[in-house]
């Protein structure tokens, strides 16, 4: 039986290779760590291929007024190509361009960003732009892409960007995080009121698995906050048990 981590990696690899997961055959037998390493290699290869031409497009983008560049990009560039170009633009230019793109296109583009560049790129964007993209991914039920997007967000942006996302969607997104330690960092920056909402939703939906992945990586302070939030919901015993078990 494949684990959650393996399933996530298989879907990510299938997306990169533009094939159905079923096409990957025996790859499902490999460990999540091997799948992750292979995915990184495929990502590297696809980003390096024809790099000089993509860099040329990035340079040409600078010759055009931002509004025109954004219109052309959205009209003729597949999101995967736009993401490669974005990775080669300066941060200010990328932020300016992203601010002119529709949230739907930005949401389509975000999962294709070079993971090595995505963090600094997102840091340059207004929070409301990133939040709008996150909202589109949530509406599309693309929890995997959501997880990858949230994982790359600068932490100060996370709480505000997730404000527009409902609690159940956040819990499902938590299931798709590649790095549980990063998920814990995300949980730690959420305000108490949001933590309470997540605990309530997890209790109502019996959907604890996402939060459970973060628990072993939480700081003592965050664990205390979580316990306090659970206490206010009258679910203190349950969360105490979970914290003790983690």
């Amino acid at each position: 039986m494949t684990t959650l981590e393996q399933q996530g990696e298989l879907v990510r690899i299938a997306r990169l290779l533009r094939v159905d997961v079923a096409r990957l055959g025996d790859l499902a037998e490999l460990s999540a760590a091997t799948l992750r390493a292979f995915r990184d290699q495929v990502t590297e290869r696809l980003f390096e291929a024809d790099r000089s031409q993509v860099a040329g497009i990035a340079a040409a983008t600078g010759l055009l007024p931002g509004g025109i560049a954004a219109r052309i990009a959205e009209a003729v560039f597949p999101a995967s190509l736009a993401a490669r170009v974005a990775g080669l633009l300066g941060t200010d230019q990328a932020a300016d361009l992203a601010g002119r793109l529709s949230p739907a296109y930005l949401a389509e583009l975000a999962p294709h960003l070079d993971p090595r560049e995505a963090g600094s790129l997102l840091a340059g964007l207004p929070t409301e732009v990133v939040a709008a993209a996150a909202r589109h991914l949530a509406d599309a039920g693309d929890y995997l892409a959501m997880a990858d997007l949230v994982a790359e967000m600068p932490l100060p942006m996370v709480a505000a960007a997730l404000e527009v996302i409902d609690d159940v969607t956040v819990l499902r997104t938590a299931l798709c995080f590649t790095e549980p330690a990063r998920l814990a960092e995300v949980v730690e920056v959420l305000p108490d009121v949001r933590l309470e909402g997540l605990l309530r939703a997890a209790s109502v939906e019996d959907a604890w698995a996402g939060l459970l992945r973060a628990l072993p990586h939480l700081t003592d302070e965050a664990r205390e906050r979580l316990a306090a939030s659970a206490e206010t919901l009258g679910d203190g015993l349950l969360i105490e048990g979970l914290l003790a078990a983690s």
Partner: peptide, 27 residues
Amino acid sequence: LHATPAPGLEELPDEQLADLALLVTTA
């Protein structure tokens, strides 16, 4: 891949490895 395949991939049957190579070049 233009790189040595990640450790662990060698566990796959050879025909599957060749198929993966085809998928990468096709992508």
